[in-house]
Design a protein around this nucleic acid. Structure first.
Lengths: 246, 246
DNA sequence: TGACACGAGATTGGATCCCAAATCTAGTCC
DNA sequence: GGACTAGATTTGGGATCCAATCTCGTGTCA
């Protein structure tokens, strides 16, 4: 199944969490257990889907009201998201969606270049033939796809899918975190990059997938690192991704 | 100065935070700003100093009472620590200090082997001669030292000091997290390893320091990775570090 | 007209009290 | 000795209240 994490169990892979449509508010008021987790998941989805953009302010009462919860679980959720790097906090000023400087984005990608090959190496021996088939299917759908948001979802599903054999929680959490905190900028880049360079992505994915199927750890790490590295370099070449330099 | 992080500003380096002696409780009741941050810092220090060990339970009312705070900021603090990987949560059961399996510990060290060289590379060009002198002084104190807990503090000060030129928040946060979540096991290992292998540590530190002073990024990364790798290998050879296998 | 000061409303941080549900503990009964 | 039940703890969450702070519109003055 998908890569899940206690710190950031991600739902976009399976679907963009359409179950809680922000109106069935009171239904879980007494559903003991995890209001704060639900609030966190709700906010996470908003941020990852770009409905909340970097710098956007998040008001506790607003969110609480929208989900039929009080401010208390919202505050807990914001603490969790802050530690995940998705929001920033300033005392008495509140929370806003985290922003990255270009340099921070670049270094975050360099972190990905070093960490994700490790996750892949941990995962590779444990992936089944079914997993391989599923990955190949996702890649086919990527090649058939033309929609921007759909691409982001599928690309994420592909890569996290290759890590799904890795069951090391600290590593999974960190990989997910890195993906989440850079999602907005990836979208902005893909939006202006257009389709013309898609063949590069697909070639890299194909090579990576082949190495995964062959269970060739060395090749897999090499292709993956190259894939992320190239993306970083192209990303940094487009400063327009950063609307307000600050 | 020291390596600081919004997600986990560390205080053990300068001193083990003796200012709030758990008795001047009410003094900050109205000191607007950061009760939750203070609670988090308090708990973090307890965990890092091993006064709270992996598996130990943390009761909200207990901590709140000890610091003259209500349960509310304690809950927020626990959420932060959970996202930092220092505590675990189970619904309706509460929080306990996080445990690592041996495999998780090993992979966490492998993460360090890949991430910390990056932090070092980012830091190296920005370290001043004063920083170099300070690092040399810390290393001298390490070689003069015989106390276990003092070694852990100094070793941490040395390594984080070499990263102190790196101002990339996401990277600093992650490095600090990795150090924090493995601190207990490092202590347990050093406790039984004794002094006999100290010369290895010191040789590695000396070589690393020399590369830092020469601003040789390649050598610095090489020595650092080797240093962490050797520690990992020795650590994994001592399963007794894990009291209850589970 | 533009810069600055000011004050009302909004928002956050936190305390306190309340309650339901789940968990832990201990004593009892078979 | 082991299973089961009842009471005490503890957590999850809500509601209300208050102080401190921030935001922002407005009014004043140069």
């Amino acid at each position: 199944m998908g890569l899940t994490t206690s710190a950031a169990d991600f739902t976009l892979v399976t679907s963009v969490n359409g179950t809680e449509s922000a109106s069935d508010a009171a239904t879980f008021a007494g559903a003991g257990g995890a209001a704060s987790a639900r609030v966190a998941s709700y906010l996470r989805d908003l941020i990852l889907s770009d409905e909340l953009k970097p710098g956007d302010r998040i008001r506790q009462e607003d969110i609480g009201g929208r989900l039929g919860a009080s401010r208390l679980p919202v505050r807990e959720a914001l603490r969790m998201l802050e530690a995940e790097g998705l929001t920033e906090h300033e005392p008495n000023k509140g929370a806003r969606v985290a922003r990255l400087t270009m340099h921070e984005l670049e270094v975050t990608y360099r972190m990905r270049e070093r960490l994700e090959p490790l996750a892949l190496t941990e995962s590779l021996p444990l992936l089944s033939h079914d997993d391989h088939a599923q990955l190949a299917d996702v890649q086919r759908r990527i090649e058939d796809n033309t929609d921007l948001d759909r691409f982001l979802e599928l690309d994420r599903e592909f890569h996290l899918g290759t890590y799904s054999g890795c069951h090391i929680d600290p590593l999974n959490a960190m990989v997910t975190r890195l993906w989440n905190s850079t999602q907005h900028y990836r979208r902005a880049y893909v939006a202006l990059g257009g389709q013309e360079r898609m063949w590069v992505v697909n070639s890299e994915h194909r090579l990576l997938l082949d190495a995964v199927v062959r269970r060739d750890v060395v090749d897999a790490e090499r292709f993956l690192e190259g894939h992320i590295r190239r993306t970083r370099i192209e990303l940094v070449r487009h400063p327009s991704v950063f609307p307000d330099v600050g």
